[in-house]
């Protein structure tokens, strides 16, 4: 017996497993690196996404990935 609903952490890992097939067909190393960057980004904000407690899993995942990418934005030349 255990929890009724999976934790955000578990739900995220479950979803990332589904993404793996997508990643497998990325043959260009740059694409592959970009994909891995997104994956890491989604994991980086597990604490915040858990705290937000959204019933929409994808919303939390995408928001995490976006914030991770946006960290780099100001560093780009205008």
């Amino acid at each position: 017996m255990g929890r009724t609903a999976p934790t955000y952490r578990q739900a995220l890992e479950e979803r990332l497993k589904r993404w793996e097939a997508f990643g497998r067909l990325l043959t260009d190393p740059e694409d592959r690196a970009a994909f891995e960057r997104i994956e890491r980004g989604t994991r980086r904000y597990i604490a915040q996404a858990t705290y937000a407690g959204s019933p929409d899993l994808l919303e939390s995942i995408l928001l995490s990935a976006l914030v991770d990418l946006a960290r780099d934005l100001p560093k780009r030349p205008k």
Binding site: T4, I46, A47, T50, P55
Partner: peptide, 16 residues
């Protein structure tokens, strides 16, 4: 409700 369950069934804050 599902929404309430997702909101309620969470532990403490754990950072990475």
């Amino acid at each position: 409700s599902l929404e309430r369950l997702v909101a309620a069934d969470r532990g403490g804050v754990i950072f990475l």
